[in-house]
Design a protein around this nucleic acid. Structure first.
Length: 558
RNA sequence: GCCCCCAUCGUCUAGUGGACUAGGACACCGGCUUUUCAUGCCGGCGACUGGGGUUCGAAUCCCCAUGGGGGUGCCA
């Protein structure tokens, strides 16, 4: 097994991405995964996916699969992981309990760890007391240390029994590949819990054991873990493990500098809903009806309890209030119709740069240019505008096949009605909409062409402006156009465009005087692809049917 | 409070003592293209947090201040 690994991994680099299965992959997590992936690919190393599911209560059913799907969508393949196996498995911490148990046993036996029996309430009280005295709380190490017998007695009494690491009384300096040396004085680090009262290891302990057991050489993780590093190094030393190289990545924030969090989704919708309530457009009852939830749940949600409503309910409120829920998870961007390669490129540029003026880079170019030393120390902000611009560039530059494939993926994942189009029509649609920014935008622009003719609704303003104005000049144009379009053969972009041009020449009308009435008649609003493309996408019979219906609706209204 | 990290246009960044009147991209503003909406093209605006050093010379090195952020859990 080990020989097998060394044959394909000349550099010996082994890095991992270690998410906990609590939901979809967050863009911040995706960036961490990406840097690990780029680093491994750059050095011909091995990229490992490990699921950190030691907090049994927080694990969410199906989250692991979602994580894997998102990683795959982004194109980050891993060499070892829960679903692909590998020589250092299993790759779920919940399946590695024996390893942790053996390690604690060793620590306990050598006097590097000890039992503690405090209840959460007692700990809380100690922390509060310290805070009241403006002191920083540090767990008071008992002297003498409790014995195995003490632990047995505590268990018998029903007290919680945890194991704490006996942090050495020594200063420590850890080297970070990005930040340089970071020093901590003696006594700065408390005796942290390494085994919970339910017997499972804490993150700090499991991560150390697994990184060593999996022979991880480089730990690239978010900077929020910097303060954990000395703890981990102390534990590594006590266990006789080598210390991997650390690289703490700068954090990623929202554009306003706040932390990117799933709560932002609720926040945006809550603000919009409160606005509706304030302006009396909605009452709490109507809002609860829109959300399809109980009134008390709605009240609680409004009062900042995010967990009271689920995303489906919040989404209904967002749609009704006309606000867009911000994308936070990778999956959100997928649903919004972004290209994974654009997201990857964009995210790579937060905290890293190839050190020249290139911004659009292929995966291969990123791999070749990737250096740990080129990673910034400064936190970055997630600028959606720039992502959008980058996605627009990627869409414009994508090969037709690739674009079609991505469109198909988006249509099926998002459940768009456009998923029913056959390849030829979808390709025409993509072509007709050139310049679109996301697939969602494309749907907004041309989706109406693929609904039943009788379902087209007419935007009042547009009808007034384009059709009714000037004593119904727009309608008159449609009347004149109708029989001629009816006899137009064949029905192609070229023939339609030529026809409209001729019509304009003969009648002295401007292009807009003809195209706009047609557009509104056919789409219900003044927005659609170029008129020739629009009509071809629609097909001749639907075009005629929609124009007739438009005219008909007018007579009925009069 | 205590500990730790960071600091160039609004945002992402280039810059590692002289080539800096600080470069690029996004956003913004103005113009052009256009049958709509977009796209595209051209131009413009716009930054070294402050103060002390070091040096012939500092965006670049050091110190202090200020600001921002992270940590301070039987979460990861």
């Amino acid at each position: 097994m080990l020989q097998d690994v060394s044959m394909t991994n000349m550099s010996g680099v082994r890095a991992r991405f270690a998410p906990s299965p609590t939901g979809y992959l967050h863009v911040g997590g995706a960036r961490t995964a990406l840097f690990n992936w780029l680093f491994c690919r750059r050095h011909g190393g091995t990229f490992v996916l490990r699921i950190e599911d030691t907090d049994i209560l927080r694990n969410i059913e199906g989250a692991e699969q979602k994580l894997i799907d998102d990683l795959r969508w982004l194109g980050m393949d891993y060499d070892e992981g829960p679903d692909v196996g590998g020589p250092f498995g299993p790759y779920r911490q919940s399946e590695r309990r024996d390893l942790y148990d053996a390690a604690v046993k060793k620590l306990l036996a050598e006097g590097n760890a000890y039992y503690a029996f405090d209840t959460p309430e007692e700990l809380d009280a100690m922390r509060k007391a310290a805070e009241a005295k403006k002191e920083s709380f540090k767990y008071p190490r008992p002297d003498p240390l409790p014995t195995e017998a003490d632990a047995a007695r505590a268990r018998a009494e029903g007290r919680p029994v945890v194991v704490r690491f006996k942090t050495p009384d020594a200063p420590i300096t850890v080297h970070d590949e990005i930040l340089g040396d970071v020093s901590f004085e003696t006594g700065q680090i408390e005796d942290l819990v390494i085994v919970k009262s339910n017997g499972w290891p804490t993150y700090h302990f499991a991560v150390v054991v697994d990184d060593a057991e999996m022979q991880i050489t480089h730990v690239l993780r978010a900077q929020e873990h910097l303060m954990n590093t000395p703890k981990h190094v102390f534990i590594q030393r006590a266990l006789g493990y080598p210390t991997p190289k650390f690289a703490h990545l700068p954090l990623v924030f929202n554009i306003d500098g706040t932390k990117m969090s799933k709560r932002d989704k609720h926040k945006v919708v809550r603000t919009a809903v409160k606005d509706r309530l304030k302006t009396k457009q909605w009452t709490k009852e109507t809002a609860a009806q829109i959300a399809e939830c109980r009134a008390d749940a709605f009240d609680k949600w409004l009062d900042k309890a995010d967990t009271e409503l689920d995303m489906a309910q919040v989404t209904r409120l967002a749609v009704a209030a006309g606000v867009v829920i911000p994308e936070i998870d990778v999956h959100d961007f997928r649903l919004s119709g972004y290209l994974p390669e654009a997201l990857v490129n964009f995210v790579a540029l937060i905290g890293w740069s190839p050190k020249d003026d290139r911004e659009i880079l292929t995966r291969q170019e990123m791999i070749e240019a990737f250096r740990l030393e080129a990673i910034n120390k400064t936190a970055g902000r997630f600028d959606r505008e720039k992502l959008l611009a980058m996605n627009t560039d990627y869409v414009a530059a994508a090969a037709p096949d690739r674009l079609l494939g991505a469109f198909r993926d988006w249509a099926s994942v998002s459940g768009s009605a456009l998923s029913k189009l056959d390849d030829a029509v979808a390709a025409d649609l993509l072509d007709a909409c050139r310049g679109f920014r996301t697939f969602r935008d494309l749907e907004a622009k041309a989706g109406v062409l693929f609904i039943p003719d009788h379902a087209v609704s007419y935007e009042k303003e547009s009808v007034k402006k384009v059709l009714e104005k000037g004593e119904g000049r727009g309608y008159q144009t449609l009347q004149a156009l109708l029989p001629q379009l009816d006899s137009l053969e064949p029905w192609t972009v070229e023939t339609i465009d030529a026809f409209i041009r001729d019509y304009c020449e003969q009648s002295g009308a401007k292009m807009g005087d003809v195209a706009q009435p047609l557009r509104v008649a056919v789409a219900g609003r003044p927005v659609s692809p170029a008129i020739g493309q629009t009509l071809v996408l629609l097909g001749k019979s639907s075009t005629l049917a929609r124009i007739r219906r438009c005219l008909d609706l007018r007579t009925r209204a009069m």
